[in-house]
Amino acid sequence: MDQIWCHRPESTQRTLERPIRATSHEYDAGARQRWRSHDHAQLIFTTSGVLRVTTSFGVWTLGPHRALWIAPLVDYEWIATSAARMHSVYFEPQASPWPESECHAVTVSSLLRELVAAMAEGRERDALITPLLLSEMRDSREASGAGLPLPLDRRLRQICDVLLADPANGDSLSIWGERVGASERTLARLFKDETGLTFGHWRQQLRIVEAVSKLARGVRVAEIAAELGYANSSAFITMFRKTMGETPQRYLKSEPR
Rank of each mutant, 00 (worst) to 15 (best):
A118T: 13
R125Y: 02
T130H: 10
V116Y: 03
L115W: 04
L132W: 12
G122M: 05
G122A: 10
R113A: 11
A118C: 07
A120K: 13
S110N: 08
T130N: 13
A127C: 03
E136K: 14
R123D: 06
L112V: 03
A127V: 10
A127H: 04
P131I: 11
S135T: 14
T130S: 11
R123W: 01
R113D: 09
M119A: 10
M119I: 01
I129N: 05
P131Y: 13
A117T: 10
S109M: 04
R123N: 08
I129Q: 02
E114D: 13
L133T: 08
V116I: 15
L128C: 07
S109A: 07
L115P: 09
L112F: 01
P131T: 12
L133Q: 12
E124W: 07
L128P: 02
A120E: 15
E121Q: 12
L128E: 14
L132K: 12
R123K: 12
D126P: 01
A127S: 10
E114Q: 10
E121L: 11
S110C: 03
L134D: 06
M137K: 12
L115G: 09
L133H: 09
A127D: 06
E121C: 01
E121A: 14
L132G: 03
L133I: 14
E121D: 09
G122Q: 03
I129V: 09
M119P: 01
L134V: 14
R113P: 00
S135P: 00
A120V: 12
